[in-house]
C-alpha cells in the first residue's frame, strides 16, 4: 500500500506485476489528491484547541486505518524502569557515524548540509549523552531499502543512516545530504515532503519518540497526510528546521537548526507540580 509509485516503469521487466498490484490495491490507488485534501480539511475543522501530537486515527494516511487503537489509553504513573532510560555510551556509537557523507569511498551527490540542535525535556533541561538515530532518502528521493522501488537512482556513496550521542548540553550534530521528496502509494500522485527521520531517547522511558524533521517552505506540506496528521499548525511547525547561516560552513555545507523538546520528565514533574 505504501510502496512507492512507479510511474516511469515502462522499460522495466516487472512492469506488468507492478501495474496489476496497483489495480488490485484498494481505493487508495484511485483516490485523488483533491479527495485526500478534502479529508485533511474536514479533520482540521474538528480541532477545538491545542494539540501537541498527531491524531492516531487519521484516515487520510490509509495505512493507519487498521493500525490505530480505537479504545482510550489508560494513564499510568510511571514506575521503576519507566522513570529511567536505557544508557548508551562511546562503546555503542563511533563519532564518525554522525557524518553521513564519509561512509563510502567517494562523495555522495547532492547538497551537503549540517543539521544540528539541542534535545531538551519539557522543563528545558538538556538530555545529555543520549542516542540520536537518523535515516533518510538520498538527494534523488531514494532509500537504500529493498522495499523502496521508486525509480530514482541509488547513490553508491550514500547509505542515509547516522547516529550520535548528545553532548553535555543536549546538542546533536549531523553532516549529511539534503534528501529529495519522494512518491508513495497512499493516493494518486502522492509525494512526501523532504524529511529526515529521527529516533530519540530522553532521560526517562516515557520520553521515547520517533519523528520526522522537515525543511522550511516545502511546497508539499499542505498535501501530505503524514505531516497534516498533526492537525494543530503550531505543533506541526515544530517539525520544520530553520535555515541558520551561523551553522553554515563556508564552502562546505549549508546549515539547519532544529531543536527537539521531549515530553516533561516525571521525576521533575512531581517536584514542580
Amino acid at each position: 500500500m505504501e510502496q512507492k509509485s512507479r510511474t516511469h516503469t515502462a522499460v522495466r521487466p516487472n512492469v506488468v506485476v507492478v501495474t496489476e498490484a496497483v489495480r488490485a490495491s484498494s481505493d487508495a490507488a484511485a483516490t485523488t489528491q483533491a479527495e485526500i485534501g478534502a479529508e485533511i480539511a474536514a479533520i482540521a475543522a474538528t480541532r477545538t484547541g491545542e494539540e501537541t501530537q498527531p491524531r492516531l486515527d487519521y484516515a487520510p494516511y490509509r495505512s493507519s486505518i487498521l493500525r490505530h487503537p480505537t479504545k482510550s489509553p489508560y494513564q499510568a504513573d510511571p514506575e521503576a524502569v519507566e522513570l529511567f532510560a536505557p544508557v548508551f555510551g562511546p562503546q555503542d556509537v563511533d563519532p564518525l557515524e554522525a557524518d553521513l557523507t564519509i561512509q563510502h569511498l567517494g562523495e555522495p551527490i547532492g547538497e551537503r548540509i549540517v543539521v544540528t540542535g539541542r534535545v531538551t525535556d519539557g522543563d528545558g533541561k538538556p538530555v545529555a549523552n543520549q542516542l540520536v538515530e537518523i535515516w533518510q532518502a538520498n538527494s534523488a528521493g531514494r532509500y537504500l531499502h529493498q522495499r523502496d522501488q521508486h525509480p530514482a537512482p541509488l547513490d553508491p556513496n550514500f547509505t542515509g543512516v547516522g547516529r550520535c550521542l548528545t553532548g553535555p548540553d543536549g546538542t546533536y550534530r549531523f553532516t549529511t545530504i539534503k534528501p529529495g521528496p519522494y512518491p508513495w502509494r497512499n493516493h494518486v500522485n502522492a509525494w512526501r515532503p523532504a524529511h529526515i527521520h529521527f529516533s530519540l531517547f530522553g532521560s526517562e522511558f516515557t520520553q521515547r519518540m520517533v519523528t520526522q524533521m522537515y525543511f522550511p517552505g516545502d511546497p508539499l506540506f499542505g498535501l501530505d497526510p503524514i505531516y497534516q496528521s498533526i492537525v494543530d499548525p503550531a505543533a506541526r511547525d515544530r517539525l520544520v528546521a530553520t535555515y541558520d547561516h551561523d551553522v553554515t560552513l563556508p564552502e562546505v555545507a549549508t546549515g539547519y537548526r532544529w531543536d527537539i523538546v521531549l515530553t516533561g520528565g516525571h521525576r521533575t514533574w512531581s517536584e514542580s507540580a
Partner: peptide, 12 residues
C-alpha cells in the same frame, strides 16, 4: 516548552 510531535516510523 511544548513537546515536538512524534510521527510514524514509516516503511523504511
Amino acid at each position: 516548552s511544548r513537546p515536538t510531535p512524534g510521527q510514524t516510523i514509516g516503511p523504511f
